[in-house]
């Protein structure tokens, strides 16, 4: 197809010329998504571990709830965050709507359930192996959680990456709460949506390829890290 050839050429050209607009958009995409992933990990790792090893009433219900939240459509999340941050909403005084902060909140809400649910799975598996040891040593609950999370660190890296993938590829939520404002809240995905709307399909595709390239690079780094961990039987 004509478009694909053009798009490849354009993507290469964009990358080689190190276009400042592109740099800004890519930079914001990474900043928003990485921040969201970090916050989501800070929340989701302990939450997932708690679901995996905790013994408290409502644990099953919480697990079901978190798993169900994984399927939350981004647009719904965007709408909820918009209603919260809107000047007519409860958090309007923060003046965060149409800012990167709003996009970070939306993405954090979106991926925390994913990270928590996947973490619960990973930690539950590991806990099956460690349980007798912890019992024997009378390890207090919070130390068990910390030890399980640390020992699952390479699996959790993959979990975080799954969250990052969803965050960086997401368009519906950030479009609503960020507004796709040029030089302020325009990220890769909203830029792609915009170029598509303008009929600039080649440029949109080229941006998509740049996004894929970034995802590829991050995955490659993770693979190497994981391979080293496997070598040392840390996975």
């Amino acid at each position: 197809m004509q478009d694909f050839g053009d798009a490849f050429a354009l993507a290469g050209q964009l990358l080689v010329s190190f276009d400042p607009d592109l740099r800004e958009i890519v930079g914001l995409s990474l900043r928003v998504s990485v921040t969201s992933v970090l916050i989501a990990c800070l929340l989701g790792f302990p939450l997932g571990a708690l679901i995996a090893v905790g013994r408290f009433p409502g644990r099953g219900l919480l697990h079901v709830f978190v798993s169900a939240m994984m399927g939350l459509p981004p647009v719904v999340v965007g709408l909820m965050v918009y209603l919260m941050l809107s000047n007519a909403g409860p958090l309007g005084s923060l003046q965060w709507l149409y800012s990167p902060a709003a996009m970070m909140i939306a993405q954090t809400v979106l991926i925390t359930p994913i990270i928590a649910a996947l973490t619960a799975q990973v930690v539950a598996d590991l806990n099956r192996e460690y349980h007798a040891l912890f019992q024997s040593l009378c390890v207090p609950a919070h130390r068990r959680v910390a030890a399980l999370l640390w020992d699952a660190r390479f699996s959790l890296l993959t979990v975080a990456l799954a969250g990052f993938g969803r965050a960086v590829a997401e368009v519906g939520a950030v479009m609503i709460v960020g507004g796709n404002i040029a030089n302020l809240t325009r990220v890769m995905t909203t830029a792609i949506a915009l170029e598509t709307a303008k009929g600039e399909l080649g440029l949109a595709l080229a941006l998509g390829m740049v996004l894929m390239l970034i995802a590829f690079a991050i995955n490659a780094v993770l693979m190497v890290t994981r391979a080293r961990a496997v070598e040392r039987a840390y996975v």
């Binding site: 460690y130 024997s136 040593l137 009378c138 020992d151 039987a233 840390y234």
Partner: peptide, 20 residues
């Protein structure tokens, strides 16, 4: 009780080693 258990220890047939 736990106080007693803290001064007990068990070695398992299959060693469970931490990933460290």
């Amino acid at each position: 009780t736990t106080a007693h258990r803290l001064r007990q220890a068990m070695l398992f047939q299959q060693p469970v080693l931490l990933r460290r």
